[in-house]
């Protein structure tokens, strides 16, 4: 026993080295879950008409993504390959239930506003995608950071879309009107199109266009 322990000395991994920092910063732009990996666009966009619910949604996704990555990584050597999907779904569903109950207890109006979309975090493809692609093959601490990074990358796009839609559609940010009344008197209108669901897709399409024009290496060749 003692021999094997000395034969394979543990390489000391830094707790927060360069590689670890990259796990968090990468998904923010170069490997953004929404605009580059094309995961998790699903239902969550429906909450982006206003900034506040989007912030709550982003926090929920960061939480679920980070902790499901951590949990899966901890048990990764004990999951039989055939049933790994169902194990992952149970882990995610449990975490989402925690989020739902916490929201219901502390912020009931937001819970009402987000309604079914909290439950739909379960089928959010980013979370499942990161479990499959990262947590099943990496150590717990790095998986945890990867979860936080991807959650933040997703939240960044969500909040950006929400800010654009709320300013143009309702003339406000987080519920505070930003255009003075004199603007409206002078003939300014809120663009009602931006409140409709279809505009979220148009906004994301344009964001992808801008991002890919700025970073040509992301352009999809097919």
């Amino acid at each position: 026993m003692a021999d094997t322990a000395t034969a394979t000395p543990q390489v000391k991994e830094p707790l927060f080295g360069k590689k670890e920092r990259k796990l968090i910063t990468d998904p923010l732009n170069d490997n953004n879950p929404i605009t580059v990996q094309v995961l998790g666009i699903c239902s969550a966009l429906a909450v982006t008409t206003q900034v506040y619910p989007s912030v709550v949604m982003s926090i929920a996704v960061v939480f679920v993504c980070a902790f499901s990555n951590l949990t899966t990584s901890l048990v990764r050597n004990h999951i039989p390959k055939q049933i790994r999907m169902i194990v992952q779904l149970v882990i995610i569903a449990t975490l989402v239930t925690i989020v739902e109950l916490v929201l219901k207890a502390f912020s009931y109006p937001v819970y009402k506003q987000l309604s079914v979309f909290i439950g739909l975090i379960i089928t959010n493809c980013i979370i499942m995608g990161r479990l499959e692609a990262f947590a099943l093959a990496n150590k717990p601490w790095r998986s945890f950071l990867d979860g936080i990074g991807n959650g933040l990358g997703y939240g960044a796009i969500l909040i950006l879309v929400a800010v654009i839609r709320e300013i143009t559609g309702k003339g406000a940010i987080g519920g505070f009107a930003i255009f003075p009344q004199s603007f409206y008197d002078a003939g300014y209108f809120n663009n009602n199109l931006m409140v409709l669901p279809a505009s979220a897709l148009l906004v994301i399409g344009v964001l992808i266009w801008i991002q890919r024009s700025m970073y040509p290496k992301l352009v999809d060749v097919s």
Partner: peptide, 23 residues
């Protein structure tokens, strides 16, 4: 289609326009 908009970007914009049509 402009290169930066090919694939994903265009799919989003098309879906948005379809959404407006369905409306």
């Amino acid at each position: 289609v402009p290169p930066a908009l090919r694939g994903l970007g265009m799919a989003f914009i098309l879906t948005g326009l379809m959404g407006i049509a369905f409306m």
